[in-house]
Design a protein around this nucleic acid. Structure first.
Length: 389
DNA sequence: GTTGCCGGGTG
DNA sequence: CACCCGGCAAC
């Protein structure tokens, strides 16, 4: 959800990678030295003050110039290193998306950045509260872009995304992060390959299992050619009541959706698929080993689905539009997930519906005329709490 | 038909 | 959350 939007922004803003590096040597200098920038002073200082300063320190002008060329050399190195790093990075996103923002904030702070210096364009303000202490120094979008490449080494996710989206071979949904679920739901992942049914606690684990056991691959995701089918399903276990019954859940039993809301919602025109909300099955799910499952797969063309949103950047993609994608992704997903959970739960309870209580219940004991003497559960037509079997 | 009780609706 | 009820399945 949020991370999709963030990724969108990242891709949009980081495309001219080299250029943004070259345009802002100050940032590099700051990053290298770790000294805190003084953006307000630099930006707001009046012309007269600058000219006065020139007069005073005119003799030292050569020093920064010499340092600048030196910086350019360093920038080339850094740029090359960054490109190489990005190219050599696995296309799979391993870190939880939410870490993106954390990483950003962290790197800002670690590097001595203050949001007021470069986020004043409002470019990122939608995703993180920024300390815009000096709104009188609006930075152009370029400056907002400029520091991102230097953040990248501290990030594990977004740089990969950038590369992914450039080569079009994205596997962005390596592991859908299971949301924190209420009702003590435990999420397991069950392999759907025939005669397997292995259940693992993490999507990465089940993918590794499928890759090694069923696909015969020994290497990790780096070897993925983007054509792997990871037929597994997410099983939500209600650890409160039905954990035991579900532990032996067969593939025929109803299951729940894979939490990939954006899979089908890609529209050919690049818009988000809010209108295709009702469509929950993917083309792959139809060819899944079990027709009753909605299967989590890692096909590249599926994984790229949400990232098509930023493709609209050329036609005016803005942070506001990304917040729109958040709004349509999150709530329907949750609702649908709950609905499926309820459905699964219902059928399970139908399968494991406990037999009728043998003992007498309030109704029998007290009779209809003494209904007020019943336990509340009996009065509410619930399972009797007084005469528990 | 009676009984127990689950799921869902309502306030 | 309390409260109520439709409806289902077992009896």
């Amino acid at each position: 959800m949020v991370w999709i939007a963030r990724r969108s922004l990242l891709r949009r803003s980081c495309s001219p990678l080299v250029h943004t590096v070259m345009y802002e040597p100050r940032v590099l200098e700051h990053k290298r030295t770790g000294r805190a920038l003084e953006p307000e002073k630099d930006h707001t200082r009046s012309v007269s003050l600058l000219e006065q300063k020139r007069k005073v320190v005119s003799s030292s002008i050569d020093v920064p110039q010499a340092r600048k060329s030196e910086e350019e050399v360093d920038m080339d190195k850094v740029t090359a290193a960054m490109v190489l790093t990005s190219l050599s990075t696995s296309p799979l996103v391993r870190s939880p998306p939410v870490k993106v923002s954390e990483g950003l904030n962290g790197s800002w702070k670690d590097g001595g950045f203050t949001p007021s210096s470069y986020s004043s364009s409002g470019y990122w303000s939608w995703s993180a509260p920024s300390d815009q202490s000096n709104p009188s120094t609006p930075s152009p979008p370029l400056s907002a872009d400029s520091f991102k490449p230097f953040r990248m080494p501290s990030l594990s996710g977004p740089p990969d995304d950038i590369i992914d989206e450039h080569d079009g071979n994205s596997l962005l949904f390596d592991e859908p992060i299971p949301r924190k679920r209420k009702n003590s739901m435990k999420v397991m992942f069950k392999c759907l390959w025939k005669n397997c049914g292995k259940v693992l606690s993490t999507a990465a684990g089940i993918q590794r299992h499928i890759r090694t056991v069923h696909l015969g691959r020994n290497c990790d995701s780096e070897c993925s050619d983007g054509e792997e089918d990871f037929y597994y399903t997410e099983i939500k276990l209600n650890t409160d009541s039905v954990a035991d019954g579900l532990s032996s859940l067969s593939p025929v039993s109803p299951s729940v959706l894979s939490p990939l809301p954006g899979l089908d919602q890609r529209q050919p025109d690049g818009t988000n698929g809010a209108k295709s909300e009702n469509s929950t099955t993917t083309p792959l799910s139809r060819s899944a080993p079990s027709a009753l499952y909605l299967v989590h797969t890692d096909h590249a063309y599926q994984a790229t689905a949400p990232v098509t949103i930023p493709s609209a950047s050329s036609t005016g993609f803005t942070p506001s539009s990304s917040s729109f994608s958040i709004s349509w992704q999150s709530p329907p997903t949750h609702t649908r997930s709950c609905a499926h959970h309820t459905h699964a739960h219902t059928e399970l309870q139908c399968a494991f519906r406990k037999s009728r209580g043998e003992g007498k219940k309030c109704r029998k004991v007290y009779g209809m005329e003494n209904r007020d003497m019943w336990c509340t559960a009996c009065r509410w037509k619930k399972a009797c709490q007084r005469f528990v079997d």
